[in-house]
Nucleic acid binder design. Structure first.
Lengths: 265, 265
DNA sequence: CGAAAAATACTGGTATGACCAGTTGATGAG
DNA sequence: CTCATCAACTGGTCATACCAGTATTTTTCG
């Protein structure tokens, strides 16, 4: 059984998804005005409160600008939105994956991980090191059975502990966003990134570098570790982009349809 | 005249700021339930719609989890919030700056810039290069007068163009968030980061490396450029943290009060 | 007594209609 | 034509009612 949690969406969630979808997929270009709130009520068949809740969220995400009396205008999300929008950009409303966004995420991951390792080596205390070592030991255990899903989970937890020990709140928050997207593609990534996930030795090396506060070593090993998975994903993305370009001449590539989880809260 | 744009806040904006403030400043710990919506109406003296708009935004920011019938529970924002929360964390409600957050931002900037330069060198087209060169020329012009504010603006635009040419949407979005925070501290940073801002030569070198698609060179020069400003800011942060620690034994450091701009939209 | 079931008192979700407060643009006076 | 005025938008706020889940309490019954 591989059931998925049922997403109970409220009306305003639905409104938010529809409107943000229209915006990020380009049907509402920057500068143009959204329909008036009362008009959206008619169009979507919901009360004004639901519309307003959704519009406030759009404004917070940097997708629109609301001004009393002046209407609600669409902004250029590439210029105004924050990293939180990644999730919305990665998955199109039809469930396909935006490969350009996927590539971006992998690149960002590869850029941040070495610095996370460096700062972790600088700032981690004994308790932090103990957690890392324990995770590595669990990985070593899972490695003998080649339990890939388990290794993936542990590797994710390893980096979770790393970023938490790095003493950098910006990395922590960015990591939360990246993890969110990663979780949605777990099943695919466990295959594609198998080499990186199986590389328990590098995880161990990083943990020990952190233990002896060896910033340089931690940084470089982390970089090398990231490179494995990143290269494979980027190769795959390139192949898929070529395929779809040739296949039906679309500029945007896509991949497997995925049902929509994502809890309300 | 150094006037500031007046921020016209709606009621739900005010509610959002108060509640998010209580949460990120720890007075509402993770796991505990927020007062019921109708109760918040009484406590804050506003109607329920305003409360609900704010709560939806809190949920979107990853600060709370709302469930029908079950109440609204506070989440651990360090684990659930996205990078967009940085802004909220950098400035406390009393206007002081959280130095730990400021340090985090500088570190992230220094980690991302080299990779942005690398990707830019890989993917920038002729038009992108032309824009970069033009900005560098303007910087060279401003440098002869040592017009620091102008150099700061141009340097920011330079990186704006770089990140836009990097072809990485995650970097673009993260940059938007970082720029937002940077803008609020411009006046301070122009002094602290003077060395970096004045280093037009490095900007030029990066632009030329991008022009000839020299990824390695672009990356390294960008790294060296970032290091200048970053080191200075980190030094300052360290000094201020020590000062406040000794001064009144507070664990958190703070610095200059700043009036609150930030437009509604 | 103790466990299952039903009633009740919560919680958030939706709907309606009214009115206030800014902005915009048409209208009419000069 | 220019400018002041006003009407028709826009979003912002409010009050009230009821629906729909959830948690708690009370009751029932083995």
């Amino acid at each position: 059984m591989n059931l998925r949690r049922i997403a109970k969406k409220t009306l305003s969630d639905e409104v938010y998804e529809q409107l943000s979808g229209e915006i990020v997929e380009g049907r509402f270009g920057p500068g143009i005005s959204l329909p008036a709130e009362r008009q959206l009520c008619d169009m979507l068949g919901v009360n004004r409160g639901a519309i307003r809740e959704a519009l406030k969220r759009l404004a917070q995400a940097g997708l629109v600008s609301i001004s009393q009396g002046g209407g609600t205008k669409v902004l250029d999300f590439r210029r105004n939105a924050g990293l939180d929008l990644l999730m919305r950009l990665l998955f199109r409303r039809d469930g396909t994956v935006n490969l350009e966004v996927a590539r971006s995420i992998m690149e960002m991951r590869a850029a941040l991980a070495p610095d996370i390792a460096r700062l972790c080596a600088r700032r981690a205390d004994k308790a932090d090191v103990a957690v890392l070592r324990q995770l590595v030991e669990q990985m070593e255990g899972a490695a003998v059975d080649d339990d890939l899903p388990q290794l993936q989970t542990l590797s994710l937890r390893f980096w979770d502990a790393m970023v938490r020990s790095s003493g950098n709140i910006a990395y922590e928050l960015a990591f939360n966003t990246l993890r969110e997207t990663y979780d949605r593609l777990r099943d695919i990534l466990v295959q594609v990134m198998a080499d990186e996930i199986r590389d328990v030795r590098s995880h161990r090396t990083i943990a020990e570098a952190v233990a002896r506060a060896d910033e340089l070593s931690a940084k470089h090993v982390a970089g090398a570790l990231m490179e494995q998975g990143t290269r494979r994903v980027l190769e795959l993305v390139a192949v898929l982009q070529d395929a779809t370009r040739q296949g039906h001449g679309a500029d945007e590539a896509d991949e497997r349809s995925a049902p929509d989880p994502e809890p309300t809260g």
